[in-house]
Design a protein around this nucleic acid. Structure first.
Lengths: 277, 277
DNA sequence: CAGTGGTCTAGACCACATC
DNA sequence: ATGTGGTCTAGACCACTGA
């Protein structure tokens, strides 16, 4: 959970056998034997294992939905006890990176239905129905320079190109949600073409399947404001009607900012739902 | 994290020595010895320990900020290994119920500054400043019948009485947030008097200190709508200006609904912030 | 059936905080 | 010096899955 470790120096304890993951690990115990006191403590072995496993997932060695080697195999590969590897994997599971099934194995999390139903889905009708489903429509997909605002959000340069996707979602035949999505083209090459062709229902599932990018965290800012004329027309509202604006930045497993999305929601019978603990 | 266990029947393995916590635990191993196959599996020991520890925290045996017995003492008390007790406590720590400090001990989480800075604080100015601080004003505290809406939110009867508290928060001398708070008087007796007298900055810290109730989860629904005349006046807005409405239900450690709060936020330079993963 | 993750134990050593 | 939580090991048995 909390990574409060010091900078760590690699030393002995090479992962044997496995051609995979081949990096050096240094246990706290060995560090103590090797060097004098007063030095920075080694990062715990299970966190080093976790780091490497995350890196291997990122590299695409195991794709979303696929299963990792068993605890025993990984323990052998790294030359550690099963318990240490288990602790690494358990943290990944707690963080939602992998899902474990007794008797089957450990699987890389996917946005596919089975695992995370409707994570990051925030809009619901007053009666509790989710705003999504097949009730979507793509308005346009294109590429353009980021500009100041998008560049700031994605931490790129204003001259860098991004893919821009505009969608509308409906509830009971009425347009209620206008989404403007910007994707970092350095991470998602030709995204505008891919989305134009596929028009996927779930952006994040598509990112996963096309680019092997897993969205694990989002950061959102909400405010109420008056609709612009263009928005009012799209959402069939009176000019200046109140709308809910949600700015979202989505982060990948690697911590990169992949998506900047502005959603504008019209109609006070549609709400944004959040559960926090 | 995931409690996917079956109903469990208590049997042997009484917690010895300790006059505290005295309940019966049944290990999976013992269950297997005692009864035939095909029966429901016992709830794992570490989860039973966790349940009991939570119950003991709720009972006020250790108050927020105080420390629990050490792993060794608890292990002796329950007649289990240190590792099993550790796993129970670690889950509680992951869920934010307790905080652990090497060399010092395990402490019941408190809303006091040190531990959870600004959990559940959601409103920020456009420049990122938190809307809170000393810039608050109590408009009124009273008691009244819940009525249908509040009763539904708090899962009580419309005739039951609740405490009602109204506050305004300011940003740069401007009123920006109008909070209407309803507390279940069955859990918080005479809350209206206590809050009238103390006018605390943090409702949740006050609940903790006065009633030993720890808020651990909130459920929120947001929407944009036009300000009512009364709201417009309080928040110095034009009639019908867009406002952000947040309905919140706050749950205690025991899972009870303690607070229903409606916050109305005026000004499109104030936003609600949410980070999810 | 063999292999997987899930639970539980027992013991070692460590860094850290407190007295 | 003592006691705390943090890491790591080694091994046991369990329930569940799939061939």
């Amino acid at each position: 959970m909390k990574d409060k470790s010091s900078p760590y120096r690699m030393k002995s304890l090479q992962s044997p056998g496995g051609s995979e993951g081949g990096e050096l690990l240094l246990s706290e115990k060995e560090r103590a034997r090797d060097v004098g006191a007063g030095r920075p403590t080694a990062r715990p072995l299970y966190l080093q294992v976790k780091d490497q496993l995350i890196r291997r997932v990122l590299s695409g060695e195991w794709r979303p939905g696929e299963c990792l080697p068993s605890e025993m195999k990984l323990a052998e590969e790294y030359g550690l006890s099963q318990g240490t590897v288990r602790k690494a994997i358990e943290e990944m599971a707690t963080e939602g990176l992998v899902t474990r099934h007794a008797g089957r194995g450990t699987f890389v999390t996917s946005h596919r239905g089975d695992y995370h139903p409707a994570r990051f889905r925030r809009f619901y009708s007053h009666s509790g129905q989710r705003i999504a489903g097949s009730q979507g429509e793509y308005i346009g997909c294109g590429r353009r320079k980021a500009g100041k605002e998008v560049a700031t959000a994605l931490r790129i340069e204003p001259e860098d190109e991004v893919a821009k996707i505009v969608r509308v979602r409906y509830f009971e035949e009425r347009p209620v949600l206008l989404e403007t999505i910007f994707l970092n083209r350095q991470q998602c090459p030709n995204a505008e073409a891919a989305f134009e062709e596929l028009k996927p229902e779930s952006i994040y599932l598509a990112l996963e399947q096309i680019y092997n990018i897993l969205i694990v965290r989002v950061d959102e800012r909400l405010r109420a404001r008056a609709a612009s004329d263009a928005e009012a027309e799209r959402l069939q509202l009176d000019a200046g009607a109140p709308v809910l604006e949600v700015e979202r930045i989505a982060y990948s497993l690697g911590g990169d900012r992949v998506e900047y999305r502005v959603s504008v929601c019209g109609g006070d019978d549609i709400h944004y739902w959040n559960q926090a603990d």
